[in-house]
Nucleic acid binder design. Sequence first.
DNA 1: GCCAACGTTGGC
DNA 2: GCCAACGTTGGC
Length: 133
Amino acid sequence: MSRWLLKSEPSAYGWADLVRDGGTRWDGVRNAQAAIHVRAMTPGDEALIYHSMSEKAAVGIARIAGPTEPDGEGGKWAAVRIEPVAPLPRPVTLAAMKATPALSGLAMIRQSRLSVSPVTDAEWAAILDLAGA
DNA sequence: GCCAACGTTGGC
DNA sequence: GCCAACGTTGGC
């Protein structure tokens, strides 16, 4: 099982929307590197939902709920269905992640514009620890 | 509001 | 195929 981080602007679509909907099709990714990550997802993988811009914090855990599907014209891009698993006991801010040595290599930190990025097992554990889980 | 990072577009 | 110009994202 792999682990991921999905970035979203909460005013566009956030954790609360995901919970309300019971799941959603995560589409509209229009970045080649991010699309590679989407295509690498398999059902059962887990993903942190991170709110960018105003909040800058990871807020919940979602599960990849289906196989990746073509997205966009000609299926050039990829989308995947996700479902909410649980909110983090407390949000983990970007500042907290940056202040944690174990997370210095986190893909999202190294490349802030990447909207879909991998999270290693060790990084995942460190983030859940910060979340009080 | 500004700026850095990065991607894309279009002229040559 | 190169590169300048421009657009977008997202942190600060």
